[in-house]
Write a protein that binds this DNA or RNA. Structure first.
Lengths: 109, 109
DNA sequence: CCTTTTCATCGCCTATCGTCGATTTGCGAA
DNA sequence: TTCGCAAATCGACGATAGGCGATGAAAAGG
């Protein structure tokens, strides 16, 4: 079972344009990149580092030390619960919203 | 094209346990419910109303006026872009993270 | 008409987030 | 050892979000 709290944490980690951009950059870059992420997002190095920390804490990325730099890689599996939740929402309420029977809305007491 | 900003807004609307709970209640309730949502989430009515406003602003739910109450219904289609993004992330970086060739990491300048 | 019910909005307060510059740490190279 | 680079951490700031009670507005029913 995945708690709402866990799901919310996951969603929160995606709830910022800079973090989405980082994920895109990571996805588009096959190998290992270092400070190029900083240039790609256009924010201060410390800010990007903080976003990377958040993504790492959420399990969305992993960081391997590679000499003087750090190698970040995606761990998309961490998002599976969130994807499953979104999928579970997909079934639309086909039976109209309120009491399709007509106008006798809520029975009079 | 869906901008990172749009995606972030979508994710932000999911980034709170109370809102997830509201969506679950809406999903589990076939017809129209009113203030039962307030009881279900266990927060103050004004707080729930605010969360509902956020969900409505994000397009995740719709509200129809039905006499004295409001009929909320899911609009899961709004989440499609976010689901697509998560899907697009799914392909894992199979070619190992950093320079699979071995130890001659970054060529010496 | 007035009453009741239901939801939205308004202030107000606290907690968390996002951002930055500055500093510290870790590692390879000279 | 010392230097320089890359990344993380720290401290501080303003902005935003989340929570509440109180109030307001629309509609059904007597």
């Amino acid at each position: 079972m995945v708690t709402d709290d866990t799901l919310a944490e996951l969603a929160k980690s995606l709830a910022h344009p800079a973090r989405l951009r980082i994920l895109r950059v990571l996805l588009a870059t096959p190998g290992c990149i270092g400070g190029e992420i900083v240039e790609a997002v256009g924010l201060a190095q410390s800010t990007v580092s903080e976003h990377l920390r958040i993504l790492k804490a959420a399990g969305l990325i992993t960081g391997e030390i590679d000499g003087p730099r750090i190698c970040y890689a995606l761990s998309p599996a961490a998002l599976a619960p969130l994807g499953a939740f979104i999928d579970s929402l997909t079934p639309p309420p086909e039976g109209a919203c309120c009491l399709p029977a007509g106008k006798d809305k809520h029975e009079p007491l």
